[in-house]
Design a protein around this nucleic acid. Structure first.
Length: 608
DNA sequence: CATCCGACAAGAT
DNA sequence: ATCTTGTCGGATG
């Protein structure tokens, strides 16, 4: 739909008042079919139908044939919908749309005279779109409809009447299929994905349910030339999900012909929470050019012609970056913070800490500062009970601590996950017990998309991090310089997953894959200096938090300068000068990534 | 064992 | 009510 209307409108403009061209366009439209295999209540089909009727009416006007009956058959607008009630609504909505268009363009009298009997025909199939053969619903020839749906609707006895009237015509597929992530899928949905994907990838369990529609589209497109697009949750173009889905689509000889960058879509209005989606149009290979749509700050859609669009919806790059346990560059190791599993008994607010130490001063020794994403960014104090195995006996002499450990034990025992139950044996321990002796370079796992730099922080000794942050323990400071760079935020924004539009940092996807040229001691010293300057600039504004310092509107000039210098020193290492823009940064990073991973087996480059 | 994700969720304004 | 921005732990490889 997104693809069709602009094309038809453009033809209408081209045709102007040329009677011949107008006639051709009218004939062409009469043979276009629109197929929505996730049609819900038929919104997309109705919009498509009405828009085409509007164009047709304009043609008839220009040709002086305003009274002419429509040549656009309602039966060329077909859908599949699993739920019976919306399926019925969709059918009625199309019939009503036709009537409305007839009233609008031809007058009420004619409209009533030609109104179809309500139960005569059925273009909406009530069934599971991932199980059905789309070719049976929307056959290539356009002459036969073999699928005779179900008992819900009256199956027409006069079969040819509902055949597509589109011999030699075009087919456009569109829709907004359901998005369900792996943890929320039903057994049936899992089975649907398994049937579709298990012969192509072992990681099919991780796919979002919406992926099924893209594969069905690609499979359909192999047999029946068509253009198709779906709205989908943005996840399918990000993080580990992108690396699983897109090789399968590419294997089916389809590429992204056009796409709209992620945007927040709050159409569902059931509560405040919207959803961040992409629109992706597939077409059979070869793709000669592609169009990338984006929203400018005024919410106007802008289109950009590019040679190709990769799975991350980045122009001209279709390299995929897989998560990696090992680093491709020689940087320090980054590990995930410590997972509590504690039900509120190991973590302490300031008040709880105060209470605990007030009733027994010996507890002080077992309390440390701890931070997740929010604490790092907003500088809020949070504490935890941190007991090493060696000091356990001393710790449980304190009754309040002993009691808290009993609660942790009970909580872990009541869990369904055997791994958690096993942790009940050591209720004094977080799942991991990692900490920096001298320092921790900490990176929040989730952070706002509005900042220019990732909110990395250098934490003092004895400051623990939770599972909501990643840490480089006792690492050299040049690592901080890299984490704070523009190059890194651009990489992470492209390669890592996202929470809606937020940065979602992970060590395996963002840090371990980050390509850095070999660093000499001199380079490391220069970068260390830059990192120190950033930290000093922050300190000059004590006690401002990271959130305050990095508010893009209010970032202090000295901090900006420190970051600019950091970027310049780092980018000179890559290309001897600063990059011009993020597109150039990404092209260089992907290029370097490809070279650095060549032949290691960790490379996941999509076969051309 | 070690994540990656959320037709979100909770806190701020 | 609308806007901003990151918890938490389940299912998975």
């Amino acid at each position: 739909m997104e693809a069709v209307h602009p094309i038809l409108r453009a033809r209408l403009n081209e045709a102007d008042d040329n009677a011949r061209m107008l006639l051709n366009l009218r004939k062409r439209m009469a043979r276009i079919r629109v197929f929505d295999p996730a049609c819900g209540s038929g919104n997309f089909l109705v919009i498509a139908y009405k828009e085409m009727r509007a164009i047709e009416a304009e043609i008839n006007n220009r040709r002086g044939e305003a009274d002419r009956p429509s040549e656009i058959p309602l039966t060329n607008f077909r859908g599949i919908e699993l739920r019976d009630f919306p399926a019925e609504i969709a059918r009625l909505a199309l019939i009503i749309a036709e009537f409305q268009c007839d009233v609008l363009y031809r007058g009420q009298k004619l409209a009533l005279a030609e109104f179809l009997p309500l139960n005569a025909e059925n273009w909406i199939t009530c069934d599971n779109a991932l199980r059905l053969d789309w070719l049976s619903i929307c056959p290539p020839s356009g002459t036969m409809v073999k699928h005779s749906a179900d008992d819900l609707f009256h199956t027409p006895s006069d079969q040819p009447q509902i055949d597509f009237e589109n011999e030699g015509g075009e087919t456009y597929i569109c829709g907004n299929p359901p998005y369900v992530w792996t943890n929320d899928q039903t057994k049936e949905q899992k089975a649907d994905l398994q049937r579709l994907f298990s012969s192509h990838t072992t990681a099919w369990r991780t796919l979002n349910y919406v992926s099924g529609w893209f594969l069905k589209l690609a499979q359909y497109g192999l047999v029946c030339k068509c253009s198709g697009a779906f709205v989908a949750i943005n996840t399918i173009c990000q993080g580990q999900h992108a690396t699983i889905l897109w090789p399968v689509i590419y294997k089916h000889k389809h590429r992204i012909a056009f796409a709209h960058e992620p945007f927040k879509w709050d159409n569902l209005a059931s509560n405040n929470a919207g959803v961040t989606v992409v629109i992706i149009g597939l077409a059979p290979e070869p793709i000669l050019s592609a169009t990338l749509y984006a929203e400018d700050p005024n919410k106007e859609t802008i289109a950009r012609k590019v040679t190709k669009i990769g799975p991350y919806l980045v122009p001209n790059v279709d390299t995929l970056v897989s998560k990696n346990r090992l680093q491709i560059s020689s940087l320090s190791e980054m590990v995930r913070g410590n997972m509590p599993y504690e039900g509120g008994y190991l973590l302490l607010s300031s008040e709880e800490k105060q209470k605990l130490t007030a009733c027994d001063p010996r507890a002080e020794k077992f309390i440390k500062r701890i931070s997740g994403s929010a604490e790092i960014i907003d500088g809020k104090p949070k504490y935890c009970i941190w007991i090493t195995d060696e000091s356990l006996n001393k710790a449980i002499e304190i009754p309040a601590i002993h009691e808290r450990l009993q609660h942790v034990k009970a909580l872990r025992l009541s869990n369904n996950d055997p791994n958690v139950v096993a942790m009940a044996e050591t209720p004094h321990r977080f799942r991991e017990m990692n900490r920096g002796i001298n320092s921790t370079i900490a990176m929040p796992a989730v952070s706002s998309e509005s900042r220019l730099y990732l909110p990395v922080e250098l934490l003092p000794p004895n400051h623990i991090i939770t599972n909501r942050a990643y840490g480089i323990y006792d690492g050299e400071l040049y690592n901080f310089s890299i984490l704070a760079s523009t190059l890194h935020i651009v990489w992470v924004g492209t390669v890592c997953g996202k929470l809606e539009l937020r940065y979602s940092y992970t060590n395996t996807l963002g840090w371990n894959t980050f390509p850095v040229p070999k660093l000499t001691d001199k380079m490391k010293a220069d970068l260390t200096r830059c990192a120190e300057d950033i930290l000093l600039a922050r300190e000059a504004h004590f006690p401002a938090t990271i959130a305050e310092l990095y508010d893009p509107e209010k970032m202090p000039a000295d901090l900006r300068e420190a970051h600019d210098r950091n970027d310049e020193v780092l980018e000179r290492i890559y290309i001897g000068r600063c990059f011009r823009n993020d597109t150039e940064r990404l092209e260089k990073l992907f290029d370097l990534y490809t070279k650095m991973t060549a032949g290691t087996g960790s490379k996941k480059k999509v076969k051309a």
